[in-house]
Write a protein that binds this DNA or RNA. Sequence first.
DNA 1: ATGGTAGAAGATCTA
Length: 262
Amino acid sequence: MLTVATWNLNSINARLPVLLKWLADASPDVVLLQELKCQSDGFPEEQLKASGYRAEVVGQKSYNGVAILSRLPVEVSQRHLPGDDGDEQARYLEAVVAGGRVRIASLYLPNGNPAPGDKFDYKLAWMERLRLHSKDLLALQEPIVLGGDYNICPSDADVYNPALFKDDALCRPDSRGKFREILHQGWIDALGLTPSGGEKGSHYTYFDYQARAWEMRNGLRIDHFLLSPRAADALVSTSIDQRPRAWDRPSDHVPALCTLDI
DNA sequence: ATGGTAGAAGATCTA
C-alpha cells in the first residue's frame, strides 16, 4: 500500500509546525507540496528528515515552489514542465518513486486571475504544455499520479457559489475545457469519484482566509489527483482531511490523500 | 465602506 498526499501550504516555513504535526498523525508515504514560497536553500530539509522524510525541492524566491517528500527512494525525472525553456516559475516536479513502482508529479497550475489578461493567457499556455506532457506520460503505460493545486473547479458542484465564480479563471469555460481535454486522454479525477453528499463543503480542498469562508464552509475543490489507468486500477481510497484548516495559523488549502495498492 | 486575509518582500504583488 502506498498513500500519497497533496497540500498547498502557502509558505512551508510559516506552515512548518502544522505540517510536522499533520505528518506525525496522518503518516503518508509521499507528500506533494505546493506554494513553498522559498528558495531551495531556505527549505527546512533537516526538520523533515527528522520526521522521516527525504525531500526533493524546486524552490523560488517569494512565489510558487513545489516539493516531493517521501519515505521511499525518489528519482527526479523532471524539474520543470516541458515545452517552454523560458518559463522560470517553479511549478512542476516529477519523480519515479520506490524503484519504479509509481511515477508521481507535484504540480502548481497557475491561478490565472485576473481573466482575461496576461496571467490567464499564461495559465492556458501552461495547461496546453501539461496536456502535451501528460499525453507522453500516458504512453509509458505506467502507474502515474499527477497531484497538486490545479486551480480549476471542474464543475459547479466544486464551487460554493457558482454564480460568483462564473467569470473567474478557476471556472471559466476555457479553463474547464482544457482540464477536460487532459482527462479525456484517459486520466481519472480520483477525488471526483466520491459523491459530495455528506456534510456541507466536505469535498472542498480550499477555504479562503477572508469573509469567514471556513466557518461557513464556503470552499472550492481545486486540488486534484489525476491517475493513469494503471494507477486507477490500484486505487483503494481517497480522502480530504479538513482538520488542519481549524488549527492555528492554517494554510487556506487542506491536504488530500489517495491510497494505491501497489 | 471599492473593503476583507495571509505571506514574503521591502514601501506591493500574488493568491
